[in-house]
Simulated assay, not measured.
Amino acid sequence: MDLVGAARAGLARVADPAKADDMRRYMRSALPFRGVAKPERARLAKQLFAAHPMPDAETWVATVLELWRGAEYREERYLALDLIGAYPRWQDVGLLPLYDELIVTGAWWDFVDEIASKRVGPLLRSDPEVVAPLLRTWARDDDRWRRRTSVICQLGSKAATDTDLLAECVEANIADQDFFLRKGIGWALRQHARTDPHWVRAFVDTHPALSPLSRREALKHLG
Score class of each variant (00 low, 15 high):
Pro88Leu: 04
Val4Phe: 02
Tyr78Ala: 11
Pro197Arg: 14
Asp22Thr: 05
Leu181Gly: 11
Asp22Trp: 07
Arg43Ser: 13
Asp176Gln: 06
Gly156Trp: 11
Glu168Met: 03
Arg144Ser: 01
Lys38Leu: 13
Leu48Asn: 07
Ala80Val: 07
Pro197His: 12
Arg69Lys: 14
Ala172Phe: 12
Ala62His: 13
Pro208Gln: 01
Ala12Pro: 13
Glu114Val: 13
Ala12Phe: 04
Arg28Val: 07
Glu217Phe: 00
Trp60Tyr: 14
Leu67Phe: 02
Arg77Leu: 02
Gln47Pro: 00
His52Cys: 09
Ala51Pro: 02
Ala62Phe: 02
Ala202Ile: 00
Asn173Thr: 10
Gly184Tyr: 04
Tyr87Ser: 14
Thr206Glu: 15
Thr59Asn: 08
Ala20Tyr: 12
Phe203Ala: 07
Ile152Leu: 11
Glu171Ser: 09
Ala42Pro: 01
Pro17Thr: 13
Pro17His: 11
Ser157Asn: 10
Leu11Gln: 09
Val4Ala: 13
Ala86Pro: 15
Leu3Glu: 12
Lys220Glu: 14
Arg89Asn: 07
Gln154His: 07
Ala175Pro: 00
Arg136Ser: 06
Trp90Ser: 06
Trp187Leu: 10
Asp162Ala: 04
His198Lys: 15
Trp60Phe: 12
Thr161Trp: 03
Met27Leu: 15
Lys38Cys: 02
Met27Phe: 09
Trp90Cys: 06
Leu67Trp: 01
Arg125Lys: 10
Gly94Val: 08
Leu83Val: 11
Trp199Asp: 02
Ala172Gly: 01
Ala132Lys: 10
Ile103Arg: 07
Leu189Met: 04
Arg182Val: 08
Leu102Lys: 03
Leu135Tyr: 04
Arg24Ile: 06
Trp90Ile: 05
Ala188Tyr: 02
Asp142Gly: 12
Glu101Leu: 09
Pro97Glu: 05
Pro53Lys: 09
Ala188Lys: 09
Leu65Cys: 07
Phe111Thr: 08
Val61Leu: 01
Arg140Asp: 02
Val130His: 06
Leu48Ala: 07
Ala62Ile: 07
Leu44Ser: 05
His198Phe: 00
Ala188Met: 07
Val36Ile: 03
Met54Ile: 05
Pro53Tyr: 04
Ala62Val: 06
Leu98Arg: 11
Pro39Asn: 14
Val4Thr: 15
Ala9His: 09
Asp110Cys: 04
Leu189Tyr: 03
Glu101Ala: 04
Ala193Gln: 08
Leu44Asn: 11
Glu40Leu: 12
Gly184His: 03
Thr105His: 08
Arg119Leu: 05
Lys183Ser: 08
Ala116Glu: 10
Pro39Asp: 15
Phe111Ser: 01
Trp109Tyr: 01
Phe180Ile: 03
Gly10Phe: 04
Trp199Phe: 07
Met23Tyr: 03
